[in-house]
């Protein structure tokens, strides 16, 4: 019996692995291509906020979005950054005044563990990184976003990677939009570089033409600020 199970596992594991590899390749090719069917309105959005300038740029995008298409909206910021969520809350509240009760239900605000705080030692950051990754995966499974907006803070990496994993496993499909911060003129940020090189983002925007020339798969569509 034990041998049979072992033999079965020996056969099943390569089959599963190759299936996963095929699926992985499919997801990589499919990313960056528009959806085949035209969209019905109401896409669950995950909006990753970062401190200071990042949030200001992101809120400029959110303000422009057609709210009936991009709804509900889940705002996520680092646990140590309550300012950014406050700004998003102020904005979402300003929407209700015009539209009544309906819209505030369409916005949720949550916080996420950061993998590493400034100045934290590298040894403890292994544990905190693991915690941050698990937390990100949990949030992605709970929210199942269809659209993800991010523009640079490190917290977007575990979130985007988790969303990509869900795509590979066939548990959900999300379009990931990355808009590199206006502060990056000559070089991408680490988050941007990772998402670009690993082809995790579906659409990658930069805000300076000289960056677009360096990274040809990126798009330039003007500046947000």
């Amino acid at each position: 019996m034990g041998l049979d199970a072992f033999a079965a596992a020996c056969c099943a594991i390569p089959v599963l692995a190759s299936l996963l590899a095929v699926r992985f390749a499919y997801v990589l090719c499919r990313s960056g291509l528009p959806p085949t069917r035209p969209r019905a309105a109401g896409l669950r959005c995950l909006i990753v906020l970062g401190s200071g300038g990042h949030t200001a740029e992101m809120m400029n995008i959110i303000t422009e979005l057609q709210k009936d298409r991009f709804t509900p909206r889940y705002y996520v910021a680092a646990l140590t950054d309550s300012m950014s969520l406050q700004k998003a809350q102020v904005y979402e509240k300003s929407l209700i005044q015009g539209e009544g009760e309906k819209i505030i239900k369409n916005a949720q605000f949550m916080q996420i563990y950061r993998s590493r705080e400034v100045g934290q030692s590298y040894i403890t950051s292994i544990a905190t990184t693991l915690l941050a990754v698990l937390h990100a995966l949990w949030l992605i499974i709970r929210i199942r976003p269809q659209v993800i907006f991010c523009n640079g803070p490190g917290t977007c990496i575990p979130l985007c990677a988790s969303a990509f994993l869900l795509k590979v496993l066939g548990l959900g499909w999300s379009s990931i939009f990355y808009i590199e911060s206006i502060a990056r003129v000559k070089k991408l940020s680490l988050s941007g570089l990772l998402l670009y090189k690993l082809r995790i983002s579906d659409q990658f925007f930069v805000q300076w033409t000289q960056l677009q020339q360096k990274y040809p798969r990126a798009q330039y569509a003007g500046r947000l600020m």
Partner: peptide, 18 residues
């Protein structure tokens, strides 16, 4: 000052919204 309209238009187009 810049504006987010062109970026949002591209995002809408990508998602298949008119």
């Amino acid at each position: 000052p810049g504006e987010a309209k062109p970026v949002v238009a591209l995002i809408n187009k990508f998602l298949g919204f008119p």
